[in-house]
Design a protein around this nucleic acid. Structure first.
Lengths: 209, 209
DNA sequence: GTCTATATAATGATAGAC
DNA sequence: GTCTATCATTATATAGAC
């Protein structure tokens, strides 16, 4: 095998993406603060404090506070898109597909809790800036993906036909993602338990037979 | 009928509560801005602009930006508490009670959309201040009220007994209130339609029989 | 009840030394 | 990669005239 020489992305993290470990650490710190305090309520000084450096030093790694949020959100959305598409490839039955999509979402809650919270809480505010146009795009892509499964399920007699598909989608989406507001990664209620309970309520309802 | 003389709350709105019409107008303007742009992202200048006055003039009516948010939220929560308690007085059957609680919540969405959005979006941030301690208190009161109905329903065999009641409550609460993020008061989907669909999904699930 | 004018503090960001 | 030092801007809030 001939080792082809290629440019390494390492060594000159600078302000370009794809970066050093330090960069990743700083992003994780920022994500946690953005998620818990809110994007606007978090100051660059607080991020720097948490990282043990001064605010000015942050600008060696990032252009701006916004660019930090952008990188966090892009990373999460790309990952989530891949995960969802894999679910569709591996599940033909609509009911199983919906259940798996929910499970995959709750698995993301363990991995990317902070990013999900930021996506949930700050999308409306951030979307006003051109650089965050991808937020709307992703939301739209997700909606198409989920509603396709729901529609398919209706056609094949798996889901009730008197459902308004768009409404049902919003129902599921809100129910899944808002969990991030109270989900405790170290609590008794694991993401798995929550997922299974939600799938059951969604499919069968809360009323006894 | 003897007209008993009493102190009017009018005439000296000042900074005390219970106030002039102007005060109410200003609060409505602030509520709309807080709801759509976020509390932190809204400046007092913007509120004043929208009201056609200068920012300094706002402080004739209110102590601070926070006190505006406080008044908006207190008003909504008090009203909602009354509405919920009336539902419980008038509905003994747990399933009907839950359905009515949901309907009453969606009716609030028409009346107090802005306040609900603020309660949803800014509670976490505002709760850090002592003056907003009532937010946690109200959230706690609501949780107790709803879970009592759910538990009662389980005992009486109306709801499935394998439900985790606290989880089911959060499920319902999130599903109802997050609607405020996309609900359009002038859209085709009326609050009534949404409410009935949600009640159906919640009770019967989405899977066909 | 609103305006003029301004105090005061905090914020995001920059330039250059180390 | 971080620090020193600091700028420019913006925000909430105040005091007193009208």
């Amino acid at each position: 095998m001939v080792a082809t020489k290629r440019l390494s992305t390492r060594g000159r993290a600078g302000r370009e993406s794809g970066g050093s470990e330090r960069r990743a650490e700083l992003l994780a710190i920022a994500a946690e603060l953005f998620a818990t305090r809110g994007f606007l309520a978090t100051t660059v000084r607080e991020i720097a404090d948490e990282a043990g450096i001064l605010s000015g030093s942050l600008y060696h790694h990032f252009d701006s506070k916004e660019s930090m949020a952008e990188e966090i959100l892009r990373g999460f959305l790309e990952e989530q898109k891949q995960a969802y598409e894999q679910v569709l490839r591996e599940n033909d039955d609509p009911r199983e597909a919906i259940a798996e999509l929910i499970r995959v979402s709750f698995r993301a809650m363990q991995r990317d809790r902070a990013a999900i919270a930021i996506f949930q809480n700050e999308s409306q505010y951030l979307s006003q800036f051109d650089r965050f146009a991808f937020l709307r795009q992703s939301a739209h892509d997700f909606e198409r993906l989920w509603t396709r499964v729901l529609q398919d399920g209706q056609r094949r007699g798996v889901f009730r036909t008197d459902l308004n598909v768009r409404l049902a989608y919003r129902f599921i989406r809100d129910m899944v993602w808002t969990t991030v507001h109270w989900y405790n990664p170290r609590g008794k209620l694991t993401a798995n338990v929550i997922a299974e309970q939600y799938i059951q309520i969604l499919c069968e309802g809360i009323v006894a037979q």
